[in-house]
Amino acid sequence: MYIVTGGAGFIGSNIIQALNQRGIDNILVVDDLTDGKKCRNLSDLNIADYMDMHDFLNAIKSDSLALEVTAIFHEGACSSTTEWDGKFVMDVNYQYSKAVLHYCLSKKIPFSYASSASVYGSGPVFKEDRSQENPLNMYAFSKFQFDQYLRRLLPTIESQVCGFRYFNVYGPREQHKGSMASVAFHLRNQILAGENPKLFGEYDGYEAGGQSRDFIYVEDLVNTKLWFLDNPQHSGIFNLGTGKAEPFRTIAETVIQYYGRGEIEYIDFPEHLKGVYQSFTEADISQLRNIGYEGEFRGLAKGVTDYLTWLEQHG
Rank of each mutant, 00 (worst) to 15 (best):
A77N: 11
A71E: 07
A252R: 10
E174Y: 01
Q190S: 08
Y259M: 09
N290T: 11
K107S: 11
N134A: 12
L273E: 08
K87G: 10
K127D: 09
S79C: 14
A140T: 00
N196S: 12
Y206E: 12
L65D: 03
L19E: 02
L311S: 11
S62G: 11
K274E: 13
P197A: 07
K87W: 15
N14P: 00
V29H: 01
P155M: 02
D25Y: 10
K127S: 12
I267W: 00
A48R: 07
K61I: 12
F146V: 01
R261D: 09
H314L: 03
R165W: 03
D230V: 12
D49H: 03
G76C: 06
E174F: 03
K37E: 06
F238M: 08
W84F: 15
V222T: 05
G275C: 13
A114R: 00
W84A: 14
D91W: 13
D230Y: 01
T242P: 01
C162R: 11
E133S: 04
P124D: 15
Y113H: 11
N231F: 04
E207C: 15
S122L: 04
D91N: 15
G201I: 09
G12F: 00
S279D: 05
K107Q: 10
Q148P: 11
T254F: 06
I47K: 05
D31F: 09
D25R: 13
P232G: 12
T156P: 05
Q287G: 12
S235L: 06
P172V: 03
A48T: 08
Y203M: 04
T5E: 07
K61W: 12
Q145H: 13
G299W: 04
N137L: 13
D55P: 08
E263Y: 09
L105F: 07
E195G: 06
D147A: 13
R152P: 12
N20H: 08
S212A: 14
R213N: 13
S43W: 14
L308N: 07
L65V: 14
I191F: 14
F215Y: 15
S286I: 14
Y170E: 08
L28I: 03
S279P: 10
N196C: 09
C39E: 09
G243Q: 01
Q211I: 10
A77C: 14
T70D: 14
P232R: 13
G163T: 05
N58P: 00
I237E: 00
V69R: 01
A184L: 05
M1R: 04
T81W: 14
F56N: 00
Y258A: 01
D214N: 07
I16A: 05
E312P: 10
K244W: 01
L192W: 08
E174W: 03
I47N: 08
L28N: 02
F126K: 00
A77S: 12
D284E: 05
I256E: 03
T254Y: 00
F73L: 07
F228S: 09
P124H: 15
G12Y: 08
D147N: 06
T156N: 15
G295F: 07
S235Q: 08
L199I: 07
S79W: 01
A18P: 04
I15Y: 13
Y206W: 10
T70F: 06
T309W: 07
L136G: 13
L150K: 06
